[in-house]
Simulated scan of single mutants.
Amino acid sequence: MGIIKASKLIYDYIRRDEEDHEEEVSRAIDQLTLDIQQGDFVAILGHNGSGKSTFAKQVNGILLPTEGTVWISGMDTRDDSHIWDIRKTAGMVFQNPDNQIIGNIVEEDVGFGPENLGVPTDEIWKRVDESLEAVGMTAYRLKSPNKLSGGQKQRVAIAGVMAMRPQCIILDEPTAMLDPNGRKEVIATLHELNQKEGITVLLITHYMEEAIDADRIIVMDDGRLVMDGTPREIFSRVKELKEYRLDVPQVTELAWELKEAGVKLPAGILTMEELMAELLPLFQEKYPKQVKLEEK
């Protein structure tokens, strides 16, 4: 069993009337079964309403299954006696860092989580130092979070979760409110934590480029797992992704359109470097004289 395991998971949102009678049932997750291993970087993709954010809240024990089971490091999320251990194991970072940052000073905010866990003061400050260094925010430790950029705030939020020493971090569209530079900062930080600290990362995103370097991509649609594989395997299936109302990385779509037009290219090209490496020999083959002139 991996660090995160779901078996036949079902979750229904139930709307009730003023007399607490069941008025409407909306199924957000439908028979979801998956297993995520310790140390993996997993991206979860899906259009709005696909169930990916609901699943994130199941992993952290914010929501509990209607049917089926979710285990975090072997602990059943429905077992009340394990709920705090589950939340220490799987830390959650939300879309808007302002909803997660509560301290007046960065270092105080980062230390808030371990303080609530009853961690001794000396150990708290050690964790604060290590967490801020890990996300590249040590120089801002005495700053007010209100004076930070969106990307910096999100890195502080990640540091706050890290200070609780989780084995896994779940991020629910953490870059949705950030500019391109802020998005790059946060994603680079996550990969560094994954590679250097061995922290399992579960990244829910609608930016396809953020999923390119994941170990694994899971695609959800209408609460079901519909695709599961490496980035190259998933992004090779462009038509299928479009049927699920998803985009693909821009360079992948360009390569796919060239391939559809008759250019001999492999499926699942993920970067501009890969595309150029494939196109250059074809260009040299078709226009050898021009290539020789340019070399001179």
Rank of each mutant, 00 (worst) to 15 (best):
I29L: 15
P288S: 10
H47F: 05
V110S: 06
L202A: 04
S131L: 05
K296I: 14
I14W: 03
I62A: 14
G103A: 11
L265H: 06
P180D: 11
V251R: 07
R155M: 14
R78F: 06
I124R: 05
E108R: 11
T77Y: 01
K264W: 00
V161Q: 04
D80V: 13
M137D: 09
L246T: 01
E24F: 06
E133Y: 00
G91F: 02
S81R: 14
H191I: 11
F94I: 09
N146Y: 13
P288A: 09
G160W: 03
D30A: 11
F55K: 02
L45K: 04
L9R: 02
D76N: 15
A214N: 05
K196E: 15
E115Y: 02
V263T: 14
L279D: 08
L193G: 03
V59K: 02
K143D: 10
R165N: 15
L63K: 07
S131A: 15
G136Y: 03
R78Y: 03
D247G: 12
A157Y: 03
V263K: 00
S81W: 00
V219Q: 09
Q38V: 04
T33D: 14
I124A: 07
N60R: 04
A6N: 02
A255E: 11
T89V: 02
G46W: 01
L148C: 10
K147G: 08
V263F: 13
Q195W: 00
K259T: 09
E18S: 14
R141H: 11
L45H: 07
E115T: 13
V93S: 03
L275A: 12
A163P: 07
G151H: 09
S26E: 03
S53A: 08
W84H: 12
N181M: 11
L9G: 02
M208K: 04
K286C: 04
Q31F: 12
L63A: 07
Q250M: 10
G103T: 05
V93P: 01
V248F: 01
K296D: 10
M272Q: 09
V186S: 13
L203Q: 09
K126D: 08
K88E: 08
G111P: 01
P266M: 10
N99E: 13
S131Y: 07
A90N: 05
A56M: 05
T77F: 01
V263G: 00
I4K: 02
P266G: 09
T77I: 15
I169K: 01
Q38Y: 11
Y287A: 10
K126E: 12
A261H: 10
F112K: 04
V161R: 02
V161I: 15
E67I: 00
E285Q: 14
M92A: 07
Y244A: 08
Q58K: 03
L293E: 14
V110P: 07
E23F: 06
L254C: 08
L246M: 15
E278D: 10
P231M: 08
